[in-house]
Every structure is written in structure tokens, then in C-alpha cells.
């Protein structure tokens, strides 16, 4: 029997982000009033307290802020994926994105330039990943 994946629970606040990934677009929130870009998606701009929001597409480019390589899965659905390299990336837009680092024989390093790509896990879930630029 296949193990059920760990899934997000998109709601009114977060659905545009997940829908964007399904279309191969990494979306961030931009304040409709002052223009500040924020992530993860939330309700209020902490700069000007506006609730007006628009979604912008990320350039997909950034550099590695920090990383880890997990040798333990913590959930049965990831056991076949070990080891898993995760990076926290400083995006050019000024926010951070966490995702797996992909690519053959790639060693993670702080400051490494990376670009985003998308992996469709099933019909309902597409996640961002990074490759070296």
C-alpha cells in the first residue's frame, strides 16, 4: 500500500501559492498599498498594515543561505528519497524559499547561486526545487 503524502491544506490565503506552483510559477505576495514583497503568504503587510495584496512571479533566482542533508526521513513517504538535501535560499526578491536541492553530484554551499524548478508529485501537489545556476 502506498503511504499517504504529507500535504498542505490550502485555504483562501495560501491557495494562489500552491496553484502557481502547479502552473510552474513561484509566486510571492506583494502589498497592494506599499509594494513590499513578503513570504510565506499571510494576511497583513507588516510595513503598512494593508490587507490589499497582489501576487507576483519570482525571477526564480537566488543564493543558498543555509542547508542540511537529512539522512532520516521522519515520515514514511520520504524513506525512498534519502538522503535529502534541503536549502534555504535568499531569493533575489528579498524573501527566502526552502526546498530540496537537485542535480547530479551537487554539494550544497552557502552562497551558491541557484534557480528554481518545479516537481509535480501528483495531480494535486507540485513543489519547488532548486538547481545550481
Amino acid at each position: 500500500m502506498e503511504v499517504e503524502r504529507v500535504r498542505p491544506s490550502p485555504n483562501e490565503d495560501t491557495k494562489p501559492y500552491w496553484d502557481g506552483l502547479k502552473e510552474g510559477r513561484l509566486l510571492f505576495q506583494k502589498c497592494g498599498h506599499c509594494g513590499a514583497i513578503r513570504h510565506y503568504p499571510r494576511q497583513v503587510c507588516d510595513k503598512c498594515f494593508s490587507m490589499d495584496v497582489e501576487w507576483i512571479e519570482s525571477s526564480g533566482k537566488g543564493t543558498v543561505h543555509t542547508w542540511t542533508v537529512s539522512q532520516h526521513a521522519f515520515h514514511p513517504s520520504f524513506k525512498g528519497d534519502l538522503p535529502m538535501t534541503f536549502v534555504t535560499v535568499d531569493m533575489d526578491e528579498g524573501v527566502r524559499v526552502a526546498a530540496r536541492l537537485r542535480g547530479k553530484d551537487v554539494e550544497p554551499a552557502i552562497g551558491m547561486p541557484v534557480r528554481v524548478a518545479f516537481e509535480q508529485l501528483d495531480n494535486d501537489l507540485t513543489v519547488p526545487v532548486f538547481y545550481p545556476q
Binding site: Y40, W67, A73, F74, F86
Partner: peptide
Amino acid sequence: TVGEYEMPLGQIAPAQLYAHMARRHME
């Protein structure tokens, strides 16, 4: 928040999430 955005990627447990802090500190 991490349940929505990070756990679906495979970062499930504090050991994985906190490792990012420790690695940055080391480097």
C-alpha cells in the same frame, strides 16, 4: 506555517528545521 510550506517538501521534524540554523552558525 511550516506544516503548510515545509513539511510537504520533506522537512518534517525539528532536527531538520533546526539543522539550517546550526549549519549557518558553523559556516
